[in-house]
Design a protein around this nucleic acid. Structure first.
Lengths: 171, 171
DNA sequence: AAAGATTGAGACTTCAATCTTC
DNA sequence: GAAGATTGAAGTCTCAATCTTT
């Protein structure tokens, strides 16, 4: 699917040229493959999903190893429902616990905290995970390339914030 | 989690420095957000998941609008099982059909072909999808940045091929 | 009523086991 | 028996609806 070779370069051509198309495909393929590989390694070595790791890691990085669920969701960029289900599963496995934050009985906020098992899990998983990220990505790129990737990512993130979710507007 | 500030720059330091860490986080956040946004738009405007789109698009791009399942899987980089389930769902919805390839009754190969509805669906979905990709990514970057993103992606893909799935080796 | 949390259904993915053809 | 295809179970994510506190 794409522009049939009818050779009418309209003013607002919605299609991509060869090179753009190839770049986009390479990029998305890389994303898929990379995520899948990292997910796989994490699962095999530590019994954690990437989602598990993200949650544990975010909690481990903060003061009391605890965060309000809402803030955690914002930090991860997750839908509230996804976070809720994820936390429920992790709680069942004893990796985290939910409580009402100190100093306010009975609020609408939920606090999520690392358990000892959770801390243990993330500490054991971190080293090999970081190692793998380094091997597959960081060391694959020059310092310059990494910094370029960073700014491109930032640029796209900004774009996502600037531009609202497009409504149905295609004929 | 990470290197406690114990200041011992070992020979094989498995951790990432501040900048690398930030880059990695920005990068993964971007991936998540971008995928989620694109998935959302596609779903809302066309009732297709990104997976649906990928399959339809791959089929539409080839000669008879048909491919061997195996080749399709390789092109998409998907696990066979994922592909199978996906195709089953799409077949149920009438977007594709499975058949035994022409010229060989009864082989172990399965051929997947676009139905008329499938072709219709991808043609209707393509324009707005490409438009969104352009808006969010292509136009967000300079030509130079896009090409840099391309080569970084390629570099990482190569890396994924070079390096075998690491076995449990952390202790 | 708005913000945050919860719930359930349905769609999607992965893993491991099995079936079939070569 | 190896390659490709199929199956089922379990885990994950999304959407829309609901509950609870402010």
């Amino acid at each position: 699917v794409g522009p049939d070779d009818r050779g009418h370069p309209d003013s607002a051509d919605p299609w991509l040229d060869e090179r753009q198309q190839r770049s986009w495909r390479t990029f998305t393929l890389m994303q898929e493959q990379l995520r899948s590989r990292i997910e796989q390694g994490l699962q095999r070595r530590s019994g954690l999903s990437y989602a598990d790791y993200a949650v544990l890691s975010a909690l481990a990085d903060c003061e009391q190893h605890a965060l309000r669920a809402f803030d955690l969701g914002r930090a991860l960029g997750w839908e509230k429902s996804r976070l809720h289900h994820q936390l429920t599963r992790m709680q069942k496995r004893g990796l985290i616990e939910r409580r009402t934050p100190t100093g306010s009985r009975n609020s609408r906020w939920v606090e999520v905290a690392l358990t000892d098992d959770g801390l243990d899990a993330i500490q054991k998983a971190a080293r090999s995970h970081v190692q793998e990220v380094r091997t597959l990505v960081i060391d694959a790129l020059s310092e310059r390339q990494l910094s370029q990737l960073d700014s491109a990512s930032q640029r796209i993130l900004d774009r996502l914030d600037e531009i609202p979710c497009a409504d149905d507007s295609g004929g």
